[in-house]
């Protein structure tokens, strides 16, 4: 007799937490097993238990460097949201701004950011500033593009309805442009948050005095591979938490979007 209804569980809310958890545990189990069975040396691929052990041993270092990476990323990300939204509205609303700035933005975005970090380090030194700027540089572009896209996709009929009511530019923005763009902003925030983390870590691993990127480079230089992996896992956890936060915020703010 089956008392547990699988299909009902898959449709339930808790499945969204339980299933990824099971997948993670399973991944670690397979990983552990593979390391043991194939006798992989720890400086090539440490087993998960080895990594967690190292996480405990180096807890103070990991915590301090995580906090550094976290606030650097958040600062760069906050700047990216501000500048990205403003730029997006400019290129979305003004054809002149679009024509003049869009090619520049695209050209700038194609430059690999890792190539800029050494320059930033010369200008600002090996500290948190290059990391913040790199996080910002990676994150603002998707936000700006999505905001402009959001404004651009307001139905022409809707614009006509507002114009025929005699709505001013400001009213059109308030009543249609801004709310219509919100789902696009949220979609971009989720991408931009992970981009900001990437930016910070790139910069920290090239030119910095602290942060998880710095920790990873130092650890691998010492052949302390388990510590490098521990830092990677912390990085992944922070990224997932930030992503989850925006998903949560999105559901609250744009509950009407389907």
């Amino acid at each position: 007799m089956k008392s547990f209804n699988l299909e009902k569980f898959f449709a339930s809310k808790s499945a969204a937490f339980v299933l990824p958890f099971i997948a993670t545990v399973l991944l670690f189990a397979i990983w552990e097993l593979a390391v043991i069975l194939l006798k992989i040396p720890p400086f090539n691929l440490p087993a998960p238990t080895n990594i967690f052990q190292s996480m405990v041993t180096f807890a103070p270092q990991i915590l301090a460097n995580s906090l550094r990476t976290l606030w650097t990323t958040m600062l760069g990300f906050a700047l990216a949201v501000l500048v990205g939204v403003i730029l997006g509205f400019m290129i979305g609303y003004s054809r002149v701004a679009y024509l003049t700035m869009y090619p520049l933005l695209v050209a700038f975005n194609t430059i690999p950011k890792a190539a800029i970090v050494p320059l930033l380090a010369i200008w600002f030194g090996a500290n948190a500033i290059p990391a913040t700027i790199t996080a910002f540089l990676l994150a603002f572009f998707p936000i700006a593009v999505n905001v402009a896209l959001g404004l651009d996709t307001v139905e022409p009929e809707m614009k006509d309805v507002l114009r025929s009511l005699g709505a001013t530019q400001v009213e059109t923005f308030q009543k249609v442009g801004w709310p219509h763009t919100l789902p696009y902003i949220f979609a971009s925030l989720k991408i931009a948050a992970s981009f900001a983390f990437i930016g910070t870590v790139i910069s920290e691993s090239v030119a910095s005095n602290a942060g998880l990127g710095y920790l990873i480079v130092q650890a691998t230089a010492d052949f302390n591979v388990p510590l490098a992996f521990a830092a990677l896992i912390v990085l992944a956890i922070m990224g997932v938490i930030l992503y989850g936060f925006f998903v949560f915020l999105e559901k609250k703010v744009i509950y009407w979007a389907r």
Partner: peptide, 16 residues
Amino acid sequence: LKNVGIAFQNPVLLPW
């Protein structure tokens, strides 16, 4: 004109 009402084939209601 300011005092007109318009409806199209697409009802364009505001989803929010």
